[in-house]
Structure formats: structure tokens, C-alpha cells
Design a protein around this nucleic acid. Sequence first.
RNA 1: GGACGAUUAGCUCAAUGGCAGAGCAUCUGCUUUACACGCAGAGGGUUGCAGGUUCGAGUCCUGCAUCGUCCACCA
Length: 700
Amino acid sequence: MSKSLLISNGAYEPKQVEDKIYKLWEDSGFFNPDKLPKRHKKPYTIVIPPPNVTGELHIGHALNATIQDILIRQKRMQGYKTLWLPGTDHAGIATQNVVEKKLIKEGKSRFDLGREKFIEEVLRWKEEKGNIILTQFKKLGSSCDWSRTRFTMDKNYEEAVKEAFLQYHKKGWIYQGKRVVNWCKRCATSLSDLELEYAEEKGKLWHIKYPVKGGGSIIVATTRPETMLGDTAVAVNPKDERYKKLIGKVAILPLVNREIQIIADESVDKDFGTGAVKVTPAHDLNDYQIGQKHKLESIQVINEMGKIMGEVLSGYQGLKVLEAREKIVSELKSQNFLEKEEDYTHQVPKCYRCNTTIELIPSLQWFLKMDKLAKLAENPVKSGKIKFHPKSFQKPYLDWLKNVKDWCISRQIWWGHKIPIEGEESVLDTWFSSALWPFAAMGWPDKNASDLKNFYPTNVLSTARDIVNQWVARMIFSGLEFTKKIPFEDVYIHATVLTREGQRMSKSLGTGIDPLKFVDEFGADATRFGIAFQIMGNQDMKFVTDNILMGKKFCNKIWNASRFVLGQIDSKMIEIKKPTGKLSLVDKKILKSLEKTIKSVNRDLNLFKFGKACHALYDFFWHDFCDKYIEESKKQNNQLPAQAEKTKNILTYVLLNSLILLHPFMPFITEEIYQQIPIKNLPAGRHGKKECIMIEEWPN
RNA sequence: GGACGAUUAGCUCAAUGGCAGAGCAUCUGCUUUACACGCAGAGGGUUGCAGGUUCGAGUCCUGCAUCGUCCACCA
């Protein structure tokens, strides 16, 4: 039945092959390293970067899945005991938002349900939708060990998170404190610096006159006049000649009539604005530091809803920030405190999950001290134990660590790991748990967990560059802190996939493209090959369908070349031998070309040069094998019987080797054809018998 | 403000300092028994701009322009 498919169909039909072949692989058990034949000894591990459960697959995921599957399949064929461990991340804020949106449609808020019911709702949603992304990976042919699938909210994983928190706590690296933090009023939670996105906004720079006690005045410039309700000082640069005589005097806060100090601080830039800055320790990071240094009072005037609080000035309480801004500007104007109003474009921080403008407010939060951990993350990269590919990502990584602030690890949402302390309602930043992934997914903190013993540390991490600091750095220091081992050796940062127009692919922009559309139209192999073909080492990759079309045509070429070769040997069982003895010029040429291709593909894959390997395979198979050797072989067939036999052997030998080399890139079609070659005996395999091309021996 | 990357055919991309190529698209001719998802061919380029080094520059150096990304952020 299946044999006739190859012999009779002149066009490759992926739909008739893919599900069948994926089932064959799953039935074989070879995705699971414990079930690989005994000859697979040395472990090789990739842990899948846990895609967040709200995620829908876009080309970027397909790119990463393809890269990892190429690596893991090649290593499996090389005889490694390969584990590709899949899983998903609970993605606290993102998931909570999705479920909240769903509730809003039903006319409810999460507060109507209460915490427990709400979490049940999230779990229900996760059961229903959370694994979609993993089935999408299967469609692409990813050879993950699904029996080991992990989720960051599993019971065991939860234990790991708790243990990590307690160990940090024991060392005194976790502290609770009231700090000015990034606050998203929509999500009602604190955010770390890495969770902000900046958007350029046109605003104004207002110059406001603050009278000085005893005569005169000082003019400050600000983009946020409403925060003046919380001003507790005016600061100037100590070297600024214009203001030297005012240092130490007292200014009167307009409208509020509070007396505030005029102080000197190095951090003030003489050349910006008027060179004098109003200091609001409660609502600005830099002002907070100035406030600490000069022991200034901190007056909070904006609450967690983004509204004015307190009775600093009557008529303001309960106003939204922007309303207060408008009102205060008009009052300053009418009372002649406004000196100047100029247009000013600046970067405004936004929540990376819901795009709401971030407020800076003082809040009681949990922090993880970063000084020692940053060093831990630095060392292995500096010493070369962990290598970035491309290398250029090393510098920004180290720069970030050099200046990193303590990590605010608490979030005021409901979906996440509760901070393990009595009475605590906050949950941990999702990245706190993601940081433990390589070892927690393998059973840590149980030191006797067999996966942890056998497969940790892992070999390669492949990920996107926008989470190098957010995730990679944190995995490295967590790994070293808790297991004393680096969690992986190679960090491969893949290209960011852009649209043809050069736009980022994202759901919110409506620019995301679902790769399954291409799997459906062109086949999984064509999609993978088309994507891999384009990986040329650039940091961006404009996605075009052309290459996938090429992949489809290439599949067809492979299919038909195989039909031709198998047609030559009829259906009798054959032995495929390494060609020896007297060979013709064309014979020698194709064999030499095969050797060259094997060498270059091996070299390129070792260097993560996937596109180059694809080009070499494409050129070899199409131009050298099909255009030249197969055409030439048609003539040789008319010659002496002995020569014809030799030619048939070379045809099958080169075809088999080509299929093996192509398998990591195009797993389905190569497996399908391999299954149909009537092989009696294999030349290369250490095992000597035919099973799956997936575990066939890789040529070196 | 700092760092990095990109700029080559209509599009997406290649090219250890040595004759600028591929895929897609376009055009011409082929129903040649593996493949029309194919075969044989053709057209299409002042390699972003201006200098410099060199016998020789797409490639190295300097400056500029445009685009992109990350980091920091000035109130």
C-alpha cells in the first residue's frame, strides 16, 4: 500500500505522509532517550524554551522549533542519547489578562469570582487551550519527548520554585521593602524594568516658577507637573553658577504653598531644561535616589489606580493623572506660575502585556539582591564556558549585568506561584520560575532525580534575542546557584522574523503569520526547509513565502529522484554497498561531491550555519545528483551488465546518504522514502538493519 | 545619549581582497518515460553616498545617509 504511493505518485503529497510518519516515530519510542537503542550512549539535551501558554504559533516559533529539531535529529543520528524536553510556561500576567478579557465579555471581573474561583477558571482555560502550541510543534515534526512534558505550575515544579525562594531567603538575598516600582494600573501589579516597553509620545515641557523664600524665584522644567503635589525639594547641579547662591535656601511650592529645600546634587544635568529639577521622591526613580541621599520626605500623591490621592491640594483627590495634569497647568497659568510651555517628544514607559502607561509609585515589594548573582552570570560567559552564537550578543549581556539593579520579584496578580510566606498574597514574577527551567524541569530539587543526573547540564539553548537578559541571564545564575553547574554550554540566538515589509510579527500589530498555514499548503518539510534555508546568520530575517515554495519544489524533486532510483532496482531486496573498485569518471565525481557535501554540512551544523547547510544539500542533490549523475546513469544503463549494477549501487548509495543528510531538515519525506527502500543490508549502520531513518547512522 | 547590525538583480538573500551568484518573479523554446512542482536558455547590477588603502575593493579604513534592534534615560 505505502510502496505504491511512492512508485505511483509523480507528485509528493505531504498530507498523505505526515500524520502517518509522525505516528510511526511516536510508536517507535525513539523520541524518548530511554527507549533509544543501546548504542546511543552520550547524552545530548535541549530544553525547549517554554512558550507561554497564551502563545499562538508564529513564524518565529516555527523557526526556533526547526532549529532545535535539526540539532536534535542530527545528534540522534550521530548516536547521542538525545532528549528534547518540551513544556509550557504559565506566563502569569499574559494568561491572567487573557482570562480576564474572557470574563469581561461575560460581564464579570476577576473580583466578582474571587481568587480561588478565578484560578479554577484559569486552569480550565489552560486545559483547553494551553497545549495548542505543543500540538503545533508536532505538526512541524518536532521530535520532543512528549512523555516528559512539563508545566511551570505543576506540583513538582512548584516545589522547585518554593525551594529556590527559600534558599535565596536563607542566604539573605531576598528582602522586602517599600521602593518606587514600575506599576501597571490596569494589571494592578508591579513590573520589573525588563517588562517595560517604551513608546515615543509627544508631550510638553512645562517651565514652572517656584518662588524662593526671601525673594526671587527658581524655574524648574517638567513633563509631569501633576507630580509637583509630591515635591519635597528642588535640585540643581552644585557646579551650576546660576544657582549657587540659591543652594540651601527654601522654595515655596506653588499652589500647595509647601516649603521645600533647594539642594545640590551631581545627578542634575545643567544643560537640560532650566538646569533646576523638582524632586518627587515618591514618583520618580532618580528623585527617589536623591531623596534617599538627602533624607527627603516622600509624599505619595498617585495611588495604585493611577489617581490622585490625599488632600495635598483640594479639588484633586480622585482625579486621573492626565486630568490632574490639565487642571494643574491651567491653575499655574492663571496664577502666573507658568513661565513657558514647549513641545517635547519623549519615551513613555508602557506595560509590555497591556500597553498601559506605567506609573512609578512607592510600594511594598519583594526584591532579590543581584550583586552576587550578577557575578555568577558573568563568569562563565567571560571565561568562555558558555558561548553565545553569534558572539556579538555577549557584550550587551555583560553590560546589562554590570549595571543591573535588584530584581523586583513580586507581582500583585493571582495567577502564579504564591510567595511562600505566611499571609502573603503576592505571587512571584513568572521569570523567577522560568529561570529554574533547565533543572526544575528535570526534577530538581530532588537531587536523585534520574533526569537531573543523566541529562543535566543541557547542551544548547536556542532562543530569541529579546529575552537574553530576562531569561538567559537568570537561568545561568539560577543554574549555578542551585546546581553549581552551568545550565547549558551554547546559547544560540536566532534571528527575529520580520514581515516582508520589515515589521515585527506580533498579534497586536496584526502582522503575525501562522506557519501552519504553510504546513497545510506546502507541507511541513517545505516549511522547515524554506525557513532554514534563510538562516544566514543575520539578526533579522524578512520572511518570504518564496523559499517555502522552493522547499516544496525540492520535496518534489527528492520524491521523483527516489522514484527513478527505486524504479531502477525494481522491488527486489538490495544490499547498498560503499562503491569500490574501478569507477568511471562520473561515478568518481558524484562520490567526491557527496564527500564534500558531508564535510560541509557537518562543519556548518557545528557552527549553527543552518542556511549554508541547506544550500549545500540543495545544490548537491539537485544539480550534482539529479541533473548530472541521474541523467548520466541513463546512458550507463545501456552499457555492460556489470557496470549497470555498479551504477545502480551508486544511485542507491548516494540517495540513501542524501536522505540521511536531509533528514534533520526534512524529516517526513526522508523517512517515508527510507521506509520504502527495499534494503536487505545497510553498509554503514552499526546495527546493520533497517529501522527508522531517524536513528540511521549519520556520516561524518 | 550608548552599543550593535543592515544597505548587492523587481523581491528575499549569497559571494577566505581576485571573472558579482541562487531561489522566487519575468521572457523564449521544449508533453526528452523520475519530476511542467520539470528541462534548456535569456533578460535584469555604477553592490546606499563620498573619499582613502591596494596591482586589484561588494569585501579593508574614514566620513555621511537611510533603516532596524538592544541598552540607558534628562526632570
